[in-house]
Simulated scan of single mutants.
Amino acid sequence: MNRRKALGSILGLTGIGIVSYVGLKYVSGNSASNKGQLPKYLNLIAELVDVIIPPTETPGAKEAKVQDYIVDFMESCASNKEYNNFFNGLNDLQETCLNTYDASFENCTMEQKMVLLEDLDNNSGSNSLFSKINNKLRGRSFFNLLKTLTIEGYCTSELGTTVHLNYAPVPGKYEAITTINTNQKAWATR
């Protein structure tokens, strides 16, 4: 065997290995988790969920203690990628608030909070193929996680199911096709 060819093959395999390792580190992100840090951000998360589902005639997400659900879910069930995305998103949001309004998110006015969340919603990505691949590789974005967990937490909370939704502990018989009256609440179970 030719010595040059053998050295070239070894160097080529080494190069492929290095590129693969670097690519894997890039895709997986920081494997070190910040788990255990979110309880410090409970007030910030409470303000965020209160902007997403504010109190009206029905209680808001903050009153339903959705912030506790989000912290528990992220601490116990989220992957390291999604946890880090959420944790970094909270920090980025606070930094943006401090740079833009010279105040933390909790101290901003409702209009400022709405502008910040609308900006996050507009930048959270579309339903394109690229965003789906990005979500698969890097995990869901901060705002996507926040919205999803807020709605899940609210709709499964006691206040959400009993006040906002039409809670019926014994729903009765199953009807596949029903007509819904004007302003009728959706049905829920706990």
Results as ranks from 00 to 15, higher is better:
Val19Phe: 07
Gln184Glu: 15
Met114Tyr: 04
Asn99Trp: 07
Ile133Ser: 12
Ser28Trp: 09
Tyr21Ser: 03
Gly8Gln: 08
Asn2Leu: 08
Ser28Lys: 14
Asn144Ala: 10
Gly153Trp: 02
Asn85Cys: 02
Asn181Gly: 13
Leu42Gly: 05
Met114Phe: 05
Gln37Val: 07
Thr148Trp: 01
Ile133Trp: 13
Glu47Val: 05
Tyr69Asp: 07
Lys25Leu: 04
Arg140Glu: 05
Leu145Pro: 00
Asn181Phe: 14
Ala6Tyr: 06
Asn166Cys: 08
Leu146Ala: 04
Gly17Val: 04
Val51Gln: 14
Ile177Leu: 14
Gly36Ser: 09
Tyr69Pro: 05
Lys62Ser: 09
Ala6Thr: 08
Ala6Lys: 12
Gly160Ser: 04
Asn43Arg: 12
Ile16Met: 11
Glu152Val: 11
Ala78Lys: 01
Ile177Arg: 10
Ile16Ser: 04
Leu120Met: 09
Gly36Leu: 08
Leu24Gly: 03
Glu175Gln: 08
Ser131Gln: 15
Arg190Thr: 09
Pro169Cys: 08
Ile177Pro: 01
Asn181Ala: 15
Asn88Ser: 12
Ile177Phe: 14
Gly153Pro: 03
Ser126Asp: 15
Cys155Ile: 14
Asn91Gln: 15
Gly153Ala: 11
Ile180Tyr: 10
Ser131Val: 13
Asn99Phe: 13
Asn80Ser: 03
Asn80Trp: 00
Val22Tyr: 00
Phe86Pro: 00
Glu95Cys: 07
Asp119Leu: 09
Asn127Thr: 11
Lys62Gln: 09
Ala176Lys: 15
Gly139Gln: 02
Thr14Pro: 00
Ile16Trp: 05
Asn84Tyr: 00
Ile151His: 02
Asn85Ala: 03
Met1Gln: 08
Arg190Met: 13
Asn80Tyr: 00
Leu98Phe: 09
Ser76Ile: 10
Ala188Thr: 10
Asp72Arg: 14
Trp187Gly: 01
Leu48Val: 07
Asn123Pro: 01
Leu42Asn: 09
Ser20Pro: 00
Asn122Asp: 06
Phe87Met: 06
Leu42Ser: 12
Glu158Asp: 13
Leu98Arg: 12
Gly89Arg: 04
Ala78Asn: 03
Ile52Gly: 01
